[in-house]
Computed example of a mutant assay.
Amino acid sequence: MNKQELVDGDAVATGANKAATGEAIDAFICAVMTAVRKGDTVQLIGFGSFSTGARAARVGRNSATGAEV
């Protein structure tokens, strides 16, 4: 499901117009992104958890030469 399919499905389910539904979904996404950027974890029971994670550095390779990047 992509964002437009989500907007369409929610608009049908709630009876709201697609523009208002799209704005509500955009506001939700913005709120989650803002909280995660601040370092918070967003947990929505039954939906998912959003947080930042640390990854170890890795060595990249040039696919043509095999040299480390």
Rank of each mutant, 00 (worst) to 15 (best):
Asn2Lys: 12
Lys3His: 01
Lys3Leu: 06
Lys3Cys: 03
Lys3Ala: 02
Lys3Glu: 04
Lys3Ile: 05
Gln4Ala: 13
Gln4Val: 00
Glu5Gln: 07
Glu5Asn: 08
Glu5Ile: 01
Asp8Glu: 12
Asp8Gln: 13
Asp8Pro: 05
Asp8Cys: 11
Gly9Gln: 05
Asp10Val: 05
Asp10Tyr: 08
Asp10Ser: 04
Ala11Met: 03
Ala11Asn: 00
Val12His: 07
Thr14Met: 08
Thr14Trp: 10
Gly15Asn: 01
Ala16Thr: 04
Ala16Asp: 08
Ala16Cys: 06
Asn17Ala: 04
Asn17Glu: 10
Lys18Thr: 03
Lys18Asp: 01
Lys18Pro: 09
Thr21Leu: 12
Thr21Pro: 06
Thr21Tyr: 08
Gly22His: 07
Gly22Ala: 02
Gly22Lys: 06
Gly22Phe: 07
Gly22Pro: 02
Glu23Trp: 05
Ala24Tyr: 10
Ile25Met: 02
Asp26Ser: 09
Ala27Cys: 01
Ala27Phe: 13
Ile29Ala: 14
Ile29Ser: 14
Cys30Gly: 12
Cys30Lys: 15
Ala31His: 10
Val32Gly: 10
Met33Asp: 15
Met33Arg: 13
Met33Asn: 15
Met33Val: 11
Thr34Pro: 03
Ala35Met: 07
Ala35Asp: 15
Val36Ile: 09
Arg37Asp: 13
Arg37Phe: 00
Gly39Ile: 07
Gly39Phe: 02
Asp40Thr: 04
Thr41Cys: 04
Val42Asn: 13
Gln43Cys: 03
Gln43Pro: 01
Gln43Met: 08
Gln43Ile: 05
Gln43Ser: 15
Leu44Ser: 09
Leu44Met: 12
Leu44Glu: 14
Ile45Arg: 10
Ile45Lys: 14
Ile45His: 13
Gly46Met: 15
Phe47Cys: 10
Gly48Ser: 07
Gly48Cys: 04
Ser49Glu: 03
Phe50Cys: 05
Phe50Ser: 05
Ser51Ala: 13
Ser51Lys: 10
Ser51Val: 03
Ser51Tyr: 04
Ala54Asn: 11
Ala56Arg: 08
Ala57Glu: 01
Arg58Gly: 10
Arg58Leu: 03
Arg58Tyr: 01
Arg58Met: 03
Val59Arg: 05
Gly60His: 05
Arg61Tyr: 07
Asn62Glu: 06
Asn62Tyr: 02
Ser63Asp: 14
Ala64Thr: 08
Ala64Tyr: 02
Thr65Ala: 06
Thr65Val: 08
Gly66Glu: 14
Gly66Val: 05
Gly66Phe: 13
Gly66Ala: 10
Gly66Leu: 10
Glu68Gly: 00
Glu68Gln: 14
Val69Gln: 15
